[in-house]
Amino acid sequence: MTENARRGFLAAGATFAGAIAVAPGLHLIAPALARGAGEPASNANRWGLLIDTNKCSASCDACVKACATENGITEQVADPRQRSQWIRKIDIKEKNGRQHSLPMMCQHCSDPPCVDVCPTGASMKRADGIVLVDRHVCIGCRYCMMACPYKARSFVHEPLTEQNPQVPRGIGCVEACTLCVHRVDKGQLPACVEACTEGAMLFGNLADPNSEISRRIAHEATTQVRADLKLNTGVRYQGI
């Protein structure tokens, strides 16, 4: 059996196991299965998001609030320009007058500029495509912030004390959306996706052609932000 065929078999097996493990009607998707203890993230997965901006209202910021709660982004730096924002709502007004709104966060690029420029290798991409900052080796040079075309990264400007035990973050390091890696590893959805009552955000495995996200991307018109840069983002949008 070739490596690919074996992987496909395993993925199919996992999907089947997921399908029978989850009660019908429960809003949980099969690929987001918890990994066993001691098992590393695998490139059989590439986690991504599909965001339907047609369902996203300008007045709603449920995803932003959920992210702040989940990741313990509670600090109130006096200068708002120095506050961390892992996810933000952007209101867009196109030349023809069309207005819409969408959540913007780390796009979890397949070829991330932040990883290219990081001098110490703190900026890194996990096997399953999640782009993270290893704060153990981040020296706080902010070169990644200069390089990111999405302004997805923030620098922690003050000492912190209110961290979520599952989400370490602290002074002098750069940080960004982790795609809620601590939840994904447990088989849960990212907090923003869970909080979106409009169903505008779909989380799934881009590496599995049978996942819902892959099927929708294959059949519907979707966009990557700054597609011209050819970064192959893990976050895709509809309706922009």
């Binding site: 709660t69 982004i73 509670t74 912190l160 209110e162 961290q163 035990p165 370490p168």
Partner: peptide
């Protein structure tokens, strides 16, 4: 402890920034 939470069973308060 600059980054990790030193308290056992700590629940982040979740106030929005």
């Amino acid at each position: 402890w600059d980054c990790h939470q030193p308290k056992a069973g700590y629940q982040a308060t979740g106030a929005t920034p």
